[in-house]
Nucleic acid binder design. Structure first.
Length: 622
DNA sequence: GCCGTTTTCGGCCCGACTGTTTTCAGTCG
């Protein structure tokens, strides 16, 4: 899906050949902007789509595209043909693109911002620019307020009001929702709709069902025999701020807190194609419909309609509509295995479903322990015992207590004395667990191997590359999680030296939140990712998929690439309070989106196997 | 602009809703 918010930011300027390579994100922004500007110019729609498609493919490419071009081995990227490849070459070697600059001279880049106004598309922008010289949001607001738009063809007083409302919306529109927040809102709405007359079931679809790391709009699908009733209930909910649109089978609203929610009605017994249609990404759906067309069928949310010899759907007496109750049947009709929602992004899942090679994704139930948790000894909220009891109640076989190390003063990092003291607390707790298990008083979900709290730490990788604890102290921990919180803006070489030092330490078992990003907050560390994966794989250091829904780090795509390099992963909650232990699920979601199978997840192992693996790191290093 | 175990040219996914259109274009997902 085209993300307007990212298309209007300008790529960072590159002045000389020694400047760093443009990132995939920079390249994607350039090609999205080209696509947008061509749209405004009124260029052939397929051409503009081609630029957007290529931009998305570049953004999702596992290799650093600009660097690969510069090194003379351009990768094959779907949607990038001769013309765009040539442009990539120019960007990689000079950091600029003459075509892009000509376009920016011809079409004011600020016009692209107008496309973000709800209800304003390329045709309207073109009209506004050509007929009224409107180039920016400010121009447009002034013109609408002054009533200077209503005499344009197709525009009225009503349109002016709609545009002003749209601009206001744009300016108070919240950033995309984090997963946890999106799910909480969706669950609340579904609870309010479930008892509307005729409602059989409700599911949330769209990017929330695919478990994308951030959610733009929420999509609710309602199976009901009384569409009118549920639509009425929906648009009248107390949390609704305004109704964007409403028809007999669908409605869209904006909530008081800014989120947009679409509701679609499904006829009972025909939910299959609806679920497929409203869950898959745009790209996934286009591929499915194209595959249907190849087989002589048109696919929409309603189901399949047979095509005639002219390529048009058969109508009248010849009409042939096939509907299905389940997604399995819809995919099956296309000779595809059912595809887990997390994979429906057109990143190879359709080919895999056709050849029976879909991955067997890791599941929350596979997780047997949590390797990254905090207590109130450093910057956590709850006591060690509360955290451990909560983990044990979740059916885990182990939890690693990883309070911060000494130099992270802001988080009350532990010094050697407190480490020793903490170790005695952990030992006492484990005595209690052992006694309770012997007496058969352990919680019912406790696995056969019992539950043990393991003693670890979150070891700071200092700005100068040294680790925060000496080797003798590190050797005493069961599991060591290393991470980098300070001096994040160092040049790549320096950051790589720090990360590499941690990966090569015989005592560091897990590299936590490797990119250091905070979604919507802090950017990634500037690392040579393929080199990080290679070193992690070589040393057998686990890479973390941090489950906090503000981190999700490694990201889905990085997790996938890491596994391709032979890395093992640890999916952790990084909980600082009891409730945050449930963040494990977001981490599992991210891993699933990254095609991660259970065999690549070390905390799906038993406690004994995990401890054996980390104990032998010194041997592996040779 | 991309792409091809039918095609190197001629296609390129589909439908609902909105507003002002006297029959449909624009926008959106």
């Amino acid at each position: 899906m085209l993300d307007r918010a990212t298309t209007t930011r300008h790529p960072r300027a590159v002045q000389d050949l020694d400047a760093p390579d443009l990132s995939n994100g920079d390249l994607a922004r350039i090609f999205h902007e080209i696509g947008d500007m061509l749209e405004v110019k009124g260029e052939l729609v397929f051409k503009t789509v081609a630029y957007h498609r290529a931009a998305d493919a570049i953004a999702h490419s596992p290799v650093e595209v600009a660097r690969a071009y510069r090194e003379g081995h351009p990768p094959r990227i779907p949607g990038v043909g001769a013309a765009i490849s040539k442009k990539l070459e120019e960007l990689a070697s000079t950091g600029r693109l003459a075509f892009h600059e000509r376009l920016r001279a011809e079409v004011p880049p600020s016009l692209v911002e107008l496309l973000a106004i709800p209800g304003v598309g390329p045709r309207t922008v073109k009209l506004l620019y050509e007929q009224r010289g409107i180039e920016s949001l400010d121009d447009l607001r002034r013109a609408a307020e002054a009533g200077h738009l209503r005499d344009l063809r197709g525009l009225t007083e009503h349109t002016e009001a709609a545009i002003l409302d749209g601009i206001a919306q744009l300016q108070r529109r919240q950033a995309r929702l984090h997963l946890g927040e999106a799910e909480r809102i969706a669950d609340g709405l579904m609870a309010e709709l479930l008892d509307a007359p005729g409602v059989a079931s409700i599911v949330s679809a769209g990017s929330l069902r695919r478990r994308r790391e951030t959610i733009g709009d929420l999509d609710l699908l309602v199976s009901t025999s009384d569409p009118q009733a549920v639509v009425r209930r929906f648009v009248g909910l107390a949390s609704v701020d305004g109704v964007i649109g409403s028809g007999p089978h669908k409605a869209a609203v904006r909530l008081v807190d800014g989120a947009q929610v679409d509701l679609m009605v499904m006829p009972p017994g025909e939910e299959g194609a609806y679920l497929v249609h409203f869950t898959g990404s745009k790209e996934h759906n286009v591929r499915l419909r194209s595959r249907a067309r190849d087989r002589g069928w048109s696919l929409s949310e309603k189901g399949f309609v047979r095509l005639g010899a002219d390529g048009e759907p058969l109508a009248g007496a010849d009409a042939d509509l096939r509907t299905f109750a389940t997604e399995q049947a819809v995919y099956g009709f296309l000779d595809l295995a059912w595809i887990p929602p997390e994979l429906r992004e057109d990143r190879g899942e359709i080919e895999a479903a056709a050849t029976g090679t879909l991955p067997r994704l890791v599941d929350l139930a596979d997780v047997r322990g949590d390797c990254h948790t905090h207590s109130d000894w450093s910057d956590g909220v709850h006591a060690i015992e509360q955290m451990a009891d909560a983990a044990r109640a979740r059916g885990y076989g182990y939890q690693v207590l990883t309070d911060h190390s000494v130099s992270l003063g802001i988080a009350h990092g532990l010094d050697a004395d407190r480490v020793a003291l903490q170790r005695s607390v952990v030992a006492a707790l484990n005595d209690r667990f052992a006694r309770e298990e012997d007496a058969g008083r352990a919680p019912g979900a406790t696995p056969p191997e019992g539950f043990r709290l393991l003693h670890g730490c979150e070891l700071e990788i200092r700005a100068d590359g040294r680790l925060d604890f000496p080797d003798e102290l590190l050797a005493g921990f069961d599991v060591v999680v290393a991470s980098l919180h300070v001096s994040r803006r160092q040049p790549r070489e320096q950051l790589m030296a720090r990360v590499t030092a941690a990966l090569r330490s015989p005592h560091v078992d897990i590299l936590a939140h490797p990119s250091g990003r905070v979604i919507g907050g802090r950017d990634d560390l500037d690392l040579d990712w393929d080199a990080v994966y290679a070193e992690a794989a070589r040393t057998g250091t686990l890479l973390e998929v941090n489950g906090s829904d503000h981190r999700l780090d490694l990201s889905d795509e990085r997790a996938r690439r890491a596994v391709e390099h032979g890395c093992l992963l640890a999916i952790d909650s990084d909980a600082h309070r009891v409730e945050e232990l449930d963040a494990m699920r977001w981490g599992v979601d991210a891993a699933r989106r990254g095609w991660v199978e259970v065999r690549s997840v070390a905390n799906a192992w038993s406690r004994a196997r995990l401890l054996d693996w980390v104990a032998r790191k010194g041997d592996r290093l040779g």
